[in-house]
């Protein structure tokens, strides 16, 4: 194997200089071989773990799920179900309203603020949409919806985090439109509308929006920091 790299290079000098493992004396060769074996095993194990992580639940991943998770989380987590198995076929618009304390001490109700609509408007004609426009609210709602049951009860710590997160986003966004007054309570709802199937498909879907309204949440003084930053 020596001189292989140089020897077959077109026009390269026919050097007899050994490179790589061949250039080493036996004890060092053993060390190099050990490293090679170790790295080969590590590479295979890593690729197998990542494969089992992205593959559908199967015989092996069900049996060794804990080991796979241990290996993959938190740094090698990945999800490549891009628009799959089906692309999202609904526009989920998040809207919010607030109760504010006015200067004379009264409580004022705001109307519904179309927060997703604001995002959509900001994305229109935008070559470089920001994560604040495209991901923040959209994914916060997904996160909330996936960590709460239909009666809006959180499924543990992550559910509670998602609630506080969504509330702070709402306080920040409504606070931009209503910067003067203290915010006491906020309420969030989602308005889900089917994307109508293409005209040529002959399918028709219900075009009536489905509304999911969450209970009123109390705004804490910590939440207000996000607006007063």
């Amino acid at each position: 194997m020596d001189g292989y790299e140089q020897g077959c290079g077109a026009g390269g000098q026919p050097s007899e200089r050994r490179t790589g493992i061949a250039a080493l004396s036996p004890p060092y060769q053993v060390a190099a071989a050990l490293v090679l074996a170790l790295l080969a095993v590590a590479t295979c194990v890593h690729l197998a773990m990542v494969f089992l992580h992205v593959a559908p639940a199967n015989t092996v991943s069900k049996r060794h799920g804990a080991a796979v998770d241990e290996w993959v989380y938190p740094e090698f987590e990945q999800n490549w179900k891009l628009f799959a198995p089906n692309p999202l076929q609904q526009n989920i618009a998040v809207e919010a309203r607030a109760k504010l304390r006015t200067a004379d001490g009264k409580v004022r109700h705001t109307g519904w603020h179309g927060l997703s609509a604001q995002d959509g408007a900001a994305i229109d004609g935008n070559l470089l949409p920001s994560h604040t426009q495209q991901n923040q609210l959209r994914r916060a709602w997904d996160y909330y919806a996936s960590t709460h049951d239909t009666r809006n009860r959180p499924n543990g710590m992550r559910g509670e985090l998602s609630e506080e997160y969504l509330r702070r986003i709402v306080v920040l966004r409504i606070g931009r439109d209503e910067p003067a007054e203290d915010m006491l309570h906020v309420q969030v709802r989602s308005v889900t509308t089917n994307v109508q199937p293409p005209s040529w498909s002959g399918e028709k879907l219900d075009s009536k929006p489905v509304i999911r309204q969450l209970p009123w949440w109390t705004v804490t003084s910590q939440d207000m920091e996000v607006r007063d930053r």
């Binding site: 076929q89 618009a93 498909s201």
Partner: peptide, 19 residues
């Protein structure tokens, strides 16, 4: 595995999402 990718309309939908 997705029905929309099978019936050939999948590419239509993301283009109609507001986001």
């Amino acid at each position: 595995q997705g029905s929309r990718w099978q019936d050939g309309t999948a590419a239509y939908y993301p283009l109609h999402l507001d986001y």
